[in-house]
């Protein structure tokens, strides 16, 4: 009898514990998401509502016009296109070069492969600010200042270590027998790389690509330093200067910010598993 009472009490304590646990976890989720919901709401409000009413309120009238206004009055469209161009070009270049390197390091036999891998990994530790002035000077000497190619080269170089780190782990788990068989059948090494290895590593290439894409899309300091003319600006720097003109027009600012984060949010909805995988693969090593 007492045992049963005791048991019931235990169950009650345990379910109370679980309730509190879920409450805390839920509150953290609200903390992480609510600022974005709030941003979405004020992007649809007018000034009278933003400055006159509670910030928690839903928009009274959903002013989609804010979006139209910032898209047509500023150069957001051009920033948007520049961001896509630089991001995509750099991602393709990075993935291709990193695949070459990872293939040579994990598949081919040579004495210094580990030393070279280490050399690439060192790049991961370097603070960008410690190389910014020389980079500026190098790009100036190459006449690449205020040219999107400075960004593409810089993104490729600085994302290479992380990309290789993500790829090496995957390459090492791939069975080598298929490649061996291809070589025995007389397949050339370039053909092997392009026709067999690259298709086999599609999963890790897409993981690395989405991580690279997020980093490039959000990059700020290289654009801010190397790009001076309006027409080459990407979204991060573009919205920063654009927002400067709208000091008190929160609706316009909110709409601008929303436009800049929507592509990332869409990518997240469809590719969240890949993103999680990429983050884990890039740092659990070591």
């Amino acid at each position: 009898m007492t045992a049963i009472v005791e048991n019931k009490k235990n169950i009650r304590i345990r379910s109370l514990g679980y309730f509190l646990l879920y409450l805390v976890l839920g509150l953290i989720a609200v903390f992480q998401i609510y600022p974005l919901v709030w941003l979405f709401f004020f992007s649809l409000k007018g000034n009278s509502e933003i400055f006159g009413r509670s910030p928690f309120a839903l928009p009274e009238e959903w002013l989609w016009g804010n979006y139209e206004r910032v898209w047509t009055t500023g150069n957001i469209g051009s920033y948007f296109f520049n961001s896509i161009f630089v991001t995509v070009t750099a991602v393709i270049l990075t993935i291709l070069l990193a695949s070459f390197v990872t293939f040579a390091i994990t598949r081919m036999n040579w004495k210094y492969s580990n030393a070279i891998l280490l050399l690439f990994m060192i790049g991961y530790m370097i603070p960008i600010h410690s190389t910014l002035v020389p980079l500026f000077q190098i790009f100036r000497n190459l006449s690449l200042l205020d040219n999107p190619f400075s960004l593409i080269l810089a993104y490729t170089a600085y994302n290479m270590p992380l990309t290789i780190m993500i790829m090496v782990g995957f390459y090492r788990t791939l069975p080598i027998e298929i490649e061996e068989a291809a070589i025995i059948d007389g397949c050339s090494i370039h053909r092997l790389f392009f026709r067999i290895t690259l298709p086999m590593t599609m999963p890790v290439m897409s993981t690395a690509a989405i991580i690279n894409m997020i980093y490039n899309w959000n990059e700020f300091i290289f654009v801010n330093t190397f790009i001076s003319s309006e027409r080459y600006r990407t979204l991060t720097v573009g919205i920063q200067s654009f927002i400067g003109q709208y000091l008190t027009d929160w609706g316009a600012i909110g709409a601008t910010l929303m436009i800049s984060i929507i592509p990332i949010l869409i990518a997240f909805v469809f590719l969240s598993n890949r993103i999680v995988e990429g983050i884990a693969a890039g740092s659990v090593k070591g």
């Binding site: 390091i105 690439f120 790049g123 170089a157």
Partner: peptide, 27 residues
């Protein structure tokens, strides 16, 4: 085939030179 020095150089060097020029030397 898998230890052809020319192929290794061809696959490694473009990336290594890029990092040398934009990361290591600037340090």
């Amino acid at each position: 085939v898998m230890s052809n020095k020319w192929v290794i150089a061809l696959y490694i060097l473009p990336s290594l030179l890029l990092l040398a020029g934009l990361v290591y030397i600037p340090i």
